[in-house]
Simulated assay, not measured.
Amino acid sequence: MVKVEFLGPINKDSVKIEANSLEQLSQILKKDAQISSWLENCAVAVNDTIICSKDVALKDGDRVSLLPPVCGG
Rank of each mutant, 00 (worst) to 15 (best):
S26P: 03
N47W: 07
L58E: 11
L66C: 10
T49C: 10
E40V: 06
V4H: 04
A33H: 11
L67H: 07
N41D: 13
A57R: 15
S21M: 05
A45R: 01
L29H: 06
K12M: 11
C52E: 15
E5I: 06
D13P: 08
C42N: 11
I35S: 07
K59W: 08
M1G: 12
A33K: 15
K12W: 02
V2W: 01
V56L: 12
I17A: 07
S65M: 06
L25V: 03
K59N: 14
S14W: 06
S53Y: 02
K59P: 07
S14Y: 10
Q24F: 06
G61Y: 03
V46I: 13
S53E: 15
L58Q: 03
T49Q: 15
I51C: 05
P9Y: 09
V44G: 06
I35L: 10
M1T: 11
L66M: 08
A19F: 01
K3Q: 14
V4E: 04
D60T: 13
N11Q: 10
K12D: 01
P69N: 04
N11A: 08
L7H: 14
Q24H: 08
S37R: 13
V2D: 03
D55F: 02
S21D: 05
P68G: 02
R63E: 15
P68V: 00
L29G: 10
D13S: 11
D60A: 09
S21E: 04
D60N: 13
Q34F: 13
L67A: 01
Q34W: 12
A43T: 08
F6V: 00
V46R: 00
V2R: 04
V46N: 02
V70H: 02
K31W: 01
I50V: 15
C42K: 08
N20D: 15
D48P: 01
E5W: 06
L39Q: 01
D60C: 05
